[in-house]
Simulated assay, not measured.
Amino acid sequence: MIIKIRTYFFLFLLVVVTFIMLPFQLIGLKFDWKLRRVLPRYWHRFACLVLGLKVRVHGAPLRKRPLMLASNHTSWSDILALSSIDDMVFIAKMEVADWPIFGTLAKLQKSVFVRREEKRSTGNQANDIAERMADGEIVVLFPEGTTSDGNRLLPIKSSLFGAAAMALPLAPDGVVYIQPVAIAYTGYHGMPMGRYHRPIVSWPGDVTLVPHLMGIMRAMALEVDICFGEPVEYRAGSNRKQVSAKVEAEIRRMLASKLLDRQIE
């Protein structure tokens, strides 16, 4: 009973803060003010606090632009953790726009929604992403194309890096930076999180959203390590598959390092 009361109390706090910040975000979106990039970071920091999600950051997003972050993907909580670090925009599949709660939040953060199965629209979508990157926004891509169980990295899709190539003509120095990011859920109530507890946070596609959200809120004590790796330069003439392989190897190395709690060279 106490856990349930606490859960609903913190959820109420999050709703109150959301409605306080909402008008300012809507105004920022309407006039495309920098405010609409900044506010989500503070909202996500508060959301992490409410959910009991402790974020440990290793390294930092590259300051050079254009910048794309390529990260492994375990759960919707990845977005909360990443967005609490810096001002970011996410690339999401079109179905996300219709999801309850998170679809609305994604729109308020001005996420880029893509239809991966429609080849005719791929060019326009990549161009939209390229323009956002050229405008100085940090664009986050989950190149696995789906969520994993949090214990491993799924093969990444090199085709999803097409937006980096599209951004090259808009890059002042003729280079787009792709920075690998590893998100590792490592702690649960102050204890190391192993394979047994990681399903608490991992969100495979067949799990209903709201019950999963409530499960994380009841846990109220999760720890996540976010590692920023060495950026890979994407230039004219770069081989997309080779760039993809470098990014994948770095994400895999950092993820294994944190999950196994030791340095992987």
Rank of each mutant, 00 (worst) to 15 (best):
M1R: 13
V16R: 10
M21I: 10
M21Y: 14
L22E: 10
W33F: 09
P40R: 08
P40W: 00
P40M: 11
Y42P: 11
C48N: 15
V50S: 03
H58S: 05
R63A: 13
K64P: 01
R65F: 12
L67K: 02
N72A: 11
A81V: 02
A81P: 02
F90K: 12
K93V: 01
W99Y: 13
I101P: 05
G103D: 02
L105R: 09
Q109M: 11
S111G: 08
V112K: 09
R116E: 07
K119M: 12
T122V: 05
A130Y: 05
A134D: 08
E137I: 03
I138G: 00
P143G: 05
E144H: 06
T147N: 05
T147R: 00
N151I: 15
L154V: 03
A163S: 14
A164L: 03
A165K: 10
P172M: 06
V175A: 11
V176E: 07
P180Y: 02
A184W: 04
M191S: 15
P192N: 03
Y196M: 04
V201N: 01
V201H: 12
P204C: 05
V207W: 10
M214Y: 14
M214L: 15
L222T: 07
I226F: 04
I226Q: 09
F228I: 06
Y234I: 00
S244I: 02
K246Y: 15
A249S: 15
Q263H: 13
I264Q: 01
